[in-house]
Design a binder for these strands. Sequence first.
DNA 1: TATGAATGAGCATTCATTCAT
DNA 2: CATGAATGAATGCTCATTCAT
Lengths: 196, 196, 196, 196
Amino acid sequence: MCPRSAEQFEQIKDERRRALLRAARAVFGRKGFAAAKIADIAAQAGISHGLVYHYYPEKESLFAATVEASAEGWELLMALARAREGTPWERLVYVCGQMIAGLREEPEHLLMTVHVVAEDASPALSDLLRRFRLRVIADLEAMIQEGQRAGEVAQGPSAALTRALVAIVQGLAINRLVEPDAALPPLDVVLRILKS
Amino acid sequence: MCPRSAEQFEQIKDERRRALLRAARAVFGRKGFAAAKIADIAAQAGISHGLVYHYYPEKESLFAATVEASAEGWELLMALARAREGTPWERLVYVCGQMIAGLREEPEHLLMTVHVVAEDASPALSDLLRRFRLRVIADLEAMIQEGQRAGEVAQGPSAALTRALVAIVQGLAINRLVEPDAALPPLDVVLRILKS
Amino acid sequence: MCPRSAEQFEQIKDERRRALLRAARAVFGRKGFAAAKIADIAAQAGISHGLVYHYYPEKESLFAATVEASAEGWELLMALARAREGTPWERLVYVCGQMIAGLREEPEHLLMTVHVVAEDASPALSDLLRRFRLRVIADLEAMIQEGQRAGEVAQGPSAALTRALVAIVQGLAINRLVEPDAALPPLDVVLRILKS
Amino acid sequence: MCPRSAEQFEQIKDERRRALLRAARAVFGRKGFAAAKIADIAAQAGISHGLVYHYYPEKESLFAATVEASAEGWELLMALARAREGTPWERLVYVCGQMIAGLREEPEHLLMTVHVVAEDASPALSDLLRRFRLRVIADLEAMIQEGQRAGEVAQGPSAALTRALVAIVQGLAINRLVEPDAALPPLDVVLRILKS
DNA sequence: TATGAATGAGCATTCATTCAT
DNA sequence: CATGAATGAATGCTCATTCAT
């Protein structure tokens, strides 16, 4: 009808897709894969459930897209961290600070990984999540090793140290979800784990 | 008619009930409430799905019983800890050591709380889990305060410190589930969080 | 163990069987075939549900036995009626009076026929009930025809007249069940249907 | 998007809803609440069982709607009767004639009340049916009292007389269901019950 | 596109029936 | 005989997915 609206359509489509991903992240993070209903996600995104299938052909694709969006968010954060000046420790402080600030507002988003366990979801999803998790861990471990070399981080096996750091962040996300009003520990308490 | 079978019946019943609870803990912990299938739990316990309903009238009751069993396990651990000689810090070391040893073998059991989030499960279940969590936190917080008074634990708000400790333990449970072969950080790394 | 108890066993067995039939009549009459639970019947008869299967190999047999017991009750009533002195009308009054007295106490028993319609129950049950119903109708119709010949009952097709009489009795059973406290119409109102 | 389809949707929806109610009335009337299968009702209405739940959220709601539709049918009949000219007796003849004509075609519809008995169906359903029944009885009783005042109906307690009338109508519905080919008694035989 | 009606596979739950004790 | 634990087929209900409009 309106020939110029092609771009607008694209815009609308993109906005909707983003809204859908936001809604999906919230609902999947909160309920897991199996318990999350497409209808709920659609409602939260303000569209009809039928329309979801114009954007993603099935529930699993939507979940995968959600995970990928999280991965992109992580890449962005790492890029920002790497672009920073300062010591390795200062970069670690920055990244952890951002993660904790993020979970304050959207704890769900850090818990999707927990639902990797829902083995009903195809192995493809499990793998996707595992791979994302491993990428995060690899990035953090690299920073930790840098810090160790700089003498800013406690010595010891960096793999276990990284798992401990990730653990506390995810654990705080759980806490946030269950007790939204409880005080989160300050950043320096969290970072004690990296200090001898 | 067969007078001795009464006790045997009771024994068998008790054993099965325990097997059922064990299976339920594993499956609920792994999949959450909604995604866990009664048929799976029954299969894991070695019984037919119909028989589950002889022991628990509905899925929610089984879940509740599972939580209660965990609560009893916790009470037992705390009783053992309180009965120990030594400083508050030594008791903390003992409790955290036991928790981490436990999650090494049965990480599921620490993650049921995450699924409190599945708010579809009646508020009754959410409340049950929240109450259990709060009890654990209260017990740990008391130990931490004791440690602070004894000068063995870092000063600062004990509430946030306790959340940090619980967070790391639950986070390690997640890690164990997702990467069963990854090395867990040693106890003293975990406990750094409580040291200035 | 106790060799003389053979007769006693028989007695006990017979008593139980009667109790079972009584319970079955009440429950089947109240709930129909499908909705009646063997466990309910057993409980009402004071035995375990497993024992029911020592007396009747399946639910349908129990139902059939219940119908047959009703049929025997009807035969008895007819025998008493036929043995009476007096006019055909007086016999009709006697039989209708007994039926109405019966439904005052046990309305269920007259409604089992309604459940013939539950076509899930095997055709065998339907046939059984239909045959019982037809026997009752044939007996009543014979009495009505006698009354017509004696000029005590209104003329007209006796088949339809009999259906009307049976209808009102069963209808009153329904009423009794639904409104146990409502006054039943006196016998002479019911019998007006047979009078011109 | 397709502006005219809105009304069409409504129409289709309404038609289906009516078809569903028709099917439900037939099946519930024939089998009672517990024995009636949603799948049967859906099949008879020509839809899938899942779709039933788009119209009624649960079996009980469908049953309730069925009862309400019957109640509306009754209201209509009473309105027509009240709008008639003639004596009270003529109105009674009209109403009873319509009821008997109705049960000739759809006897099920008059038997739903019998299944009030299935007390497993929530008390809400029992109450609904009882209330409907009482409304019918109240309407009929009013007409009978009018007839008594006009000297057209036999004297005596109108409550019991009304129960007798309702009884015969429901009883004839049972007869129709069990023996679809048996002759129903003519209207004037039924109405004898109201004549001294 | 966007909607929501329609379908059917899947799961919780019930209950007739069996059987070890 | 008597019990009640055990099984599994059947049924209510949910929800991902499709599709006519």
